[in-house]
Computed example of a mutant assay.
Amino acid sequence: MLEQAADALDRQDYDTAAKLIAILSAERPDDLLVRLYAAKLQAATDRLDDALQGYRLVLQQAVNPKLVAEARSGIERIDLLQAQNRADELEIARSGIEERSEPGFLVLEPMSADQKQATFKQFATIMNLDPYSARLQLPSRGWRLYRVGQMGRLAFLRDRLLKAGIPCFCVSQHDTQQVFVFQVNHLQSFHPQAEIVCTDDRSELRTLKFDWSEVTQIVTGMLPIFEEVVEIDGRNRTRRKAKILDYVSIYDLQLRDRRTIFRLCAQTYDFCDYKQSITQKRHPLMSEPRNRSGANLGGVLNGDRIPVTSRDNWKNVISQISEQISEQISEHQTQSSFTPFAETAIGYPELLHRIDPHLELLRRADSMWDRAFHLYSTLAMCRDRDATRL
């Protein structure tokens, strides 16, 4: 039967060879000659990595000089073939690299522990890293801004990573700049359409309407508020240090077909419209004063006014929006892992300095986190738009 398998390989009858070698492998699992022919079949059917592993196993265990020579010859042929394939890929990619010279971003997507274990060696080869560094650089919590450079080179790397089973995407800087962003002052109406009072790029106040069905994605994030504080160390010496004192919630409504983002910010949202004030839970001793429109103005318990905080009002606004979009927005259409992305993005300060955050927060100093959130949101918009084209 082994001679028949060898003859089938010579005739390039790979189906017959595969059947015969499968039978032989089951009957004689430790036969190195069978393993050698299995590696030859894998090499002939373009399974080069499996063939390379098979040849190396034969080379490690074989004593027969003929088997050793054939295994070495097979390894050499695969090395030459892989080198030629890489050269061909680079040659093909060069034209694309030269044509696509505009700047762009390469983003790695999060992976499970099993995915990282299965792909980190290939990632190390593609990125010319040692295996330990490669394992650390593959993200598990959220997106990682991995490379900034020419789109041609990034697209070439993206294709190789995807082929290796590593989830990623790349977006040109030009595409992220083709998104219209409006800072929401407040929602004037929820039914039957959303009516939003907002400011545009020129800080002009506008009123816009859209159907809730147009919302295709939600992007959320928490922006840290840094303040300079005075600390006293163990030697009773004072020193100034920047610390995070609070966080501000950001909520982006994305309308893919309009290439538009409506950005809500908990710090700047105007809650003057009492329709959006939180409705207190009814208490037997609580009265509920209302305005002319019938909206709740806050509860009164035993004659004392119950305070309604901005945090409560913000939660109520987000809850009302969620009710409107719950039918068409799934968990996969909500991007909420901003923090791990920002931790990598702030490593590119020169890039972030050129980004308009489209936010006007009350803080002493500008923050890279605001700019990183705008980049995160526009990348999500472009990735979502590209995914619908496939």
Rank of each mutant, 00 (worst) to 15 (best):
S293E: 14
W314K: 08
F120C: 04
R144S: 12
D312T: 02
I97Y: 02
D356F: 03
R144G: 01
I321H: 10
G234E: 12
K243T: 14
T344L: 02
R305L: 10
R290E: 11
P349L: 05
D130F: 02
L136N: 14
D175I: 06
R259W: 06
G294D: 09
A242F: 09
L362R: 12
L351R: 05
V68Y: 05
V317N: 01
L351H: 09
Q115Y: 05
S277D: 05
Y14P: 03
N296R: 13
A44C: 08
T334Q: 14
T199M: 04
A124G: 04
R206F: 03
L301T: 02
A6Y: 03
R237Y: 08
Q82V: 13
Q53T: 13
G152N: 09
Q254I: 15
F156R: 12
R237E: 15
L67V: 09
I306S: 05
S172A: 14
A118C: 02
T199Y: 13
I218D: 00
L359N: 01
E228G: 01
E99D: 13
D50L: 14
L136V: 04
G149K: 08
R239K: 12
R290N: 02
P167V: 07
S293T: 07
T207G: 02
I75S: 09
A372M: 09
R364I: 06
N128G: 02
I329Y: 00
I321D: 09
K281I: 13
R202W: 08
T260R: 12
R364F: 08
S249V: 00
G142C: 11
D200K: 10
